[in-house]
């Protein structure tokens, strides 16, 4: 056995592996979490939309996930638009986040917030959604947050909450789709495209995550507005706004 001082895995691999395990476990759709002792946001809240961290891949015949620039841009646009529409229905205003210009310290803090959120998201996915990794110190409670550093986002924008979205999605190329069909005929299983993501709503006054949701399914197509709507609806299920 190894002696190991630090175990800090490469970011996307954690999520891809979580996805893989959950698929292998029979696949689940979405389950959301609410933060402890967190008040429900009032109607007509200002919500800062942090630029969604999205990459869309094409799954080629060789099994490779090849990033597609055009699909990714389309997905970012669709997701942003759908999020704004959904939130508008509850009377909230979605403000897209613009990183500060010419203020290096502030830019640096806000970059750290984004990176911290990613690791907190990974932590939640591992320790709240996979029973064998439950933490006794988090039993029956959900009190993760980003700390007071988020105040700089509140000061810059006047928003009360921030919405973070993380998505990775891959779509089979025609070649691979044909292969999957062929393989299925022969009784061999081949992995198709995988969709994985999470979203969280952070209270910019306290830094606490008031709502967290994991998305995991094999359906939904972020490249088109109509199909993106379904995926976003699932992602935002049970959000308190």
């Amino acid at each position: 056995m190894e002696k190991q001082l630090f175990v800090m895995p490469h970011r996307t691999i954690v999520l891809l592996l979580v996805a893989a395990v959950l698929i292998a476990c029979g696949g689940c759709v979405t389950t959301s979490q609410r933060g402890d002792r967190c008040a429900t946001p009032p109607p007509s809240t200002n919500v800062l939309l942090i630029e969604p961290d999205i990459i869309l891949f094409e799954l080629t015949a060789g099994g490779l996930e090849e990033p597609r620039a055009d699909w990714t841009e389309a997905a970012k646009a669709n997701v942003g638009k759908k999020l704004a529409e959904i939130l508008q229905k509850t009377g909230d205003k979605l403000i897209p986040h613009q990183p500060p210009v010419n203020v290096p310290e502030r830019t640096h803090t806000q970059e750290q917030i984004l990176k911290l959120h990613e690791v907190v998201g990974q932590t939640v996915l591992i320790h709240k959604y996979i029973p064998i990794y439950d933490l006794p110190t988090k039993q029956g409670c959900f009190d993760w947050g980003l700390g007071e550093c988020v105040k700089s986002l509140k000061e810059d924008t006047g928003a009360d909450y921030a919405l973070f979205v993380y998505l990775r999605d891959s779509y089979t190329s025609p070649g691979r789709a044909a292969l999957i069909v062929a393989a299925a005929i022969l009784g061999v299983g081949l992995q198709g495209g995988v969709q994985l993501g999470f979203a969280s709503l952070v209270d910019l006054q306290t830094g606490q995550i008031v709502w967290f949701n994991r998305l995991m399914s094999g359906v939904g197509d972020l490249r088109t507005p109509e199909a993106a709507e379904k995926a976003i609806q699932e992602l935002l299920a049970n959000n308190p706004l």
């Binding site: 015949a61 025609p174 070649g175 062929a182 005929i185 022969l186």
Partner: peptide, 20 residues
């Protein structure tokens, strides 16, 4: 897997690869 299936699979595989 019997031979028939294997060759069918390979044929499809090659066909797919050529087409892409």
């Amino acid at each position: 897997m019997n031979r028939c299936k294997i060759s069918l699979f390979l044929l499809l595989f090659c066909g797919v690869c050529v087409s892409c």
